[in-house]
């Protein structure tokens, strides 16, 4: 899933968009004037809320309308509700509105801002629902920068409310396994590799099972990585990640003999891969050569 466009529209959707455009042109100006006039008068009610929905459907970048909408929700909707449950029910509806917008405009910052704000207002927010939305959006575009940032935000928010260290570790573990799953589906998904790198630093710090010992973790992770570089030796994501695993960050804590054996094994495997590339295509693989030179440098260097 490379190069997913900011706006991804099928033929049908394009036709529908054209029809919507005709509607937009006739109503947009009128609607804008009406919304701006009522906000000037501080009118906070269901009618003005509805008007901002219609305006934001037409122009999700209209930050004044988002700001006004938050004020309507705070000053009108929330003030009439009796408890957190009622607020939660309203927020669910509001999240649906935002969710629908994200489907058409998955890369508009203001929609994401509003979603975050809603989540922060909701004492009873439903983690499962948010994760389902995130998973779905990552299925549509596994590299969407906003969705990944939102995923880390939600996970961070949930973890900040956790009291037991074990629960935080478990949550990081689930996230780590999710990156394994995405990488197994598509090794070129560098966003997943990146998130993995963030998570494994946390897991190593917490000495979770499977992460207590840097050496055994490294051996396991390198074998996972090896599958990936054998699958597609031209894929830069994998080599960038390999270079990190073989950087002083990991190697400095290893005893000399283990450090040497890790590097020696890698050198052997990459050379073997390059030989088979030469056999197949008649020439060396550039990433193999770069990695060989890097590993050799690390072997001659004491950290």
């Amino acid at each position: 899933m490379h190069g997913v466009k900011r706006e991804q529209l099928s033929k049908d959707a394009k036709q529908r968009k054209r029809e919507r455009d005709a509607f937009k042109i006739s109503h947009y100006k009128q609607l804008t004037e009406s919304v701006l006039a009522s906000k000037q008068k501080n009118i906070f009610n269901n009618d003005t809320l509805g008007e901002t929905s219609r305006l934001l459907d037409l122009n999700p970048e209209f930050y004044t309308a988002w700001n006004y909408r938050r004020d309507i929700i705070t000053n009108h909707v929330f003030s009439e509700l009796k408890d957190s449950q009622a607020a939660h029910t309203f927020i669910l509806k509001e999240l649906q509105f935002v969710g629908k917008q994200l489907k058409s405009y998955p890369k508009v910052y203001w929609i994401w801002n509003h979603r975050k704000w809603l989540i922060e207002q909701d004492d009873l927010f439903d983690l499962k629902q948010e994760m389902a939305l995130i998973d779905k959006m990552l299925t549509m575009d596994s590299r969407n920068y906003h969705v990944w940032a939102y995923r880390r935000y939600i996970v961070g928010l949930v973890q900040s409310k956790m009291e037991r260290e074990e629960d935080i570790i478990l949550s990081n573990m689930e996230e780590f396994n999710y990156t394994t799953k995405l990488i197994e589906e598509n090794i070129s998904n560098y966003s997943a590799w990146h998130n993995r790198s963030q998570l494994l630093q946390k897991l190593l710090n917490s000495k979770t099972e499977g992460f207590e010992d840097k050496y055994s973790f490294l051996v396991k992770e390198l074998s996972f990585l090896q599958n990936a570089y054998y699958t597609d030796p031209d894929d830069s994501a994998v080599w960038v990640y390999l270079r990190w695993l073989l950087s002083p960050f990991f190697l400095k804590d290893l005893p000399q003999d283990k450090r040497n054996s890790v590097l020696k094994d890698q050198l052997r495997d990459i050379k073997e891969l390059n030989d088979s590339e030469i056999e197949d295509s008649g020439k060396s693989n550039a990433w193999c050569l770069k990695s060989i030179s890097y590993v050799e440098k690390m072997m001659n260097q004491h950290v």
Partner: peptide
């Protein structure tokens, strides 16, 4: 700044 040398949009984000 990330380990690969690139910078992300905010801390912990992917290099861009």
């Amino acid at each position: 700044l990330n380990y690969n040398g690139g910078l992300g949009g905010s801390p912990k984000e992917e290099s861009h």
